[in-house]
């Protein structure tokens, strides 16, 4: 039980520290904005460790962070192979194909007001549906390997990106479009020099939503059938073996990959849409 008492004391101390830091004079500095959540996260992990040890929670219910990290370090090659299979082959290729398809369809649709008015509500509707349910069908069509995972990802990311791009392409104002016309710009010049750049904040909004969906799609599709490698496969089989430390190690990989992917897209967005008010801060 000493572990639990130590956890309670640690929690109270860390919280008091955070309250003082958050209400102190230097609370607006960049360092504080990083330090306070870092203290909170670290405390959470330590409390988890202490409670699991103090109460001797069995492994099949909740492994301690130290065990997860040990397993993570020990199973590096397996985790890397799973990562390549699910993220690089499945999620990334699907993400790129889906993005390319959505952007092309958006530009095609954009030429006709009629199509745009029809497609936006339908696309918005489909984007809210449980598209993940198509996974068993696509696994049946494209086989167990990464191609079916990429197909699920394509279907999942297509509609959010399409809807955002179509909405973004209407973003340039009539005045700006008229200006392009007075310069004798063709449709394509107007598209590439004015309307596509103006649509970028919207497109990146769609891409950021799609990063999470891509990883979810690739992992969940593996629950319906996969080769004997992959993050979803490893999660479902390790759950079956009650090797929960392995499951958590795989979740750690998924969390790292998901955050890094999102961060990368957000970083590119910062470079591309540097002119937008939300980026100038």
């Amino acid at each position: 039980m000493t572990g639990v008492y130590a956890a309670v004391v640690l929690w109270a101390l860390a919280w008091m520290l955070n309250v003082r830091l958050a209400n102190g004079d230097r609370r607006e500095t960049r360092a504080m904005r990083l330090l306070v959540p870092a203290i909170f996260g670290l405390t959470l992990v330590l409390v988890w460790e202490l409670v699991v040890r103090g109460l001797q929670v069995p492994l099949v219910i909740l492994p301690s962070p130290s065990r997860i990290l040990t397993r993570f370090a020990a199973e590096m090659p397996v985790l890397w192979a799973d990562f390549v299979q699910t993220f690089v082959k499945g999620a990334l290729s699907g993400f790129f194909i889906g993005t390319a398809a959505a952007l092309s369809v958006a530009i095609l649709v954009d030429r006709s007001e009629f199509l745009r008015r029809g497609l936006l509500p339908v696309g918005n509707f489909i984007a809210a549906l449980p598209i993940i349910g198509t996974a068993p069908i696509l696994v049946m069509w494209f086989g167990f390997d990464w191609q079916s995972k990429a197909a699920v990802v394509v279907v999942m990311v297509f509609f959010p990106i399409l809807v955002n791009t179509v909405a973004g392409l209407t973003e340039a104002s009539a005045m700006q479009r008229d200006l392009m016309k007075t310069w004798g710009a063709s449709y394509w010049q107007g598209l590439f020099k004015l309307r596509l750049p103006a649509a970028m904040p919207f497109i990146f909004n769609g891409l950021k939503i799609a990063t999470t969906l891509a990883l979810i799609g690739a992992i969940v599709a593996e629950f319906f059938g996969s080769p004997i490698v992959g993050m979803g496969f490893r999660i479902s089989t390790s759950v079956g073996q009650l090797a929960l430390d392995m499951v958590w190690a795989e979740i750690l990989v998924a969390a790292l990959a998901g955050s890094a992917f999102y961060g990368l897209v957000a970083f590119i967005e910062k470079g591309v849409t540097f002119w937008h008010p939300s980026q100038r801060g």
Partner: peptide, 21 residues
């Protein structure tokens, strides 16, 4: 304010994690 500074960044970061897994 303490809760805002401690929890909010994690709440936002957790959106990028495939929780469904």
């Amino acid at each position: 304010r303490a809760m805002d500074m401690s929890v909010m960044p994690w709440a936002i970061a957790s959106q990028t994690i495939p929780i469904l897994a």
